[in-house]
């Protein structure tokens, strides 16, 4: 509405001016005052949301002495990267590497098999597909705790314990229900005629999937991939269960154990470690926030 009025005003400023000016004079200050409480509330809310991040960032440059003797709002006395150096000296580089080694293969496999399954369940016509879809859906609700102990036994018996495989395999299994379900939903929004036309043109179903279906849901695959990335990257439960040595720790498990490595809390390094672990997801959000918001909310409404 505001866009419309300004557009009209710019076309015919004289005609509208006499009408609008008195209105503004009468309603202006009162309207401003009426809106003031909500504005203040909103400002406080934004400070509460953003301040912890600012505090974390500033804290990552402070020394132990500054933490113990200065009030929390003091600025760091120097911008030295000493705390960050100590974080990486404590194995954080390895933790980040472990997270990458575990998360990306899981992501690739879950997307490839999940998209194919979504296609088979939604586009193709066969008996029992409703049941199979329900079977996948059930996995969204069952807590991961239900599968941890048998999986521990399986990995132990097959000698996979102590490798990256337990984490990768478990991420694939826990990621599949949502991926399959979201992909099925996306395929549902593609008009069936497209696939029917491509089969009439003589394409086999596998070709239809590869050459017609996949390009159509390319953006959806990216969105689902983003959502799953956050789930895998931020996971603690599975990583904690299947890392039995420091060499396997992911970034979350490493961070959890970080404060425990010293006798007293080393504030600066702890803040730097938090900043490092937050950095990745925050940067992704900075650039892709619209897709992330769309993906995360789509993954829940239907789930």
């Amino acid at each position: 509405m505001t866009v419309q009025t300004t557009a009209i005003a710019s076309v015919n400023p004289r005609g509208l001016a006499p009408e609008r000016v008195p209105q503004r004079r009468a309603g202006g200050p009162r309207r401003f005052l009426a809106r003031l409480p909500v504005r203040i509330l909103l400002a406080i809310l934004l400070v509460i949301m953003i301040y912890p991040m600012v505090w974390m960032f500033l804290g990552s440059f402070k020394t132990q002495g500054e933490f113990l003797n200065e009030p929390f709002w003091s600025l760091p006395q120097s911008w030295s990267f000493e705390n960050y150096v100590s974080v990486f000296e404590n194995g954080f580089g390895q933790y980040i590497l472990n997270s990458i080694i575990v998360v990306f293969p899981s992501l690739a496999i879950v997307l490839i098999v999940g998209v194919a399954a979504g296609f088979a369940l939604e586009v193709m016509v066969w008996k029992g597909r409703g049941t199979v879809l329900l079977l996948f859906l059930a996995g969204i609700m069952v807590p991961t705790q239900m599968i941890l102990l048998p999986l521990f036994t399986i990995y132990f018996r097959t000698g996979l314990t102590g490798t990256y495989w337990p984490m990768i395999l478990t991420y694939i299994a826990t990621g599949l229900p949502l991926t399959v379900f979201m992909m099925a939903t996306f395929f549902r929004s593609v008009p069936r005629e497209i696939f029917e036309a491509s089969t009439l043109d003589g394409a086999g179903i596998l070709r239809s999937f590869w050459a017609v279906g996949l390009p159509l849901v390319k953006n959806a695959v990216f969105t689902v991939g983003l959502v799953q990335f956050f789930f895998f990257w931020n996971d603690l439960l599975i990583a904690l269960t299947f890392t039995n040595s420091d060499a396997l720790r992911t970034i979350q498990v490493g961070l959890l154990n970080f404060t425990g490595q010293y006798g007293a809390v080393q504030y600066g390094p702890t803040f730097a470690a938090i900043a490092v672990s937050v950095f990745g997801t925050l940067v992704i959000y900075l650039f892709l926030n619209q897709q992330v918001m769309k993906g995360l909310t789509a993954g829940s409404v239907k789930g």
Binding site: M124, V125, I147, I172, A173, L176
Partner: peptide
């Protein structure tokens, strides 16, 4: 074509196998 059993197996098989075994 849309009900091709072999294609269903190829597309759905890997996901269903992984899901069954690990979940």
């Amino acid at each position: 074509v849309l009900g091709d059993k072999r294609a269903v197996l190829i597309l759905l098989g890997p996901a269903l196998l992984l899901y069954s075994l690990i979940m």
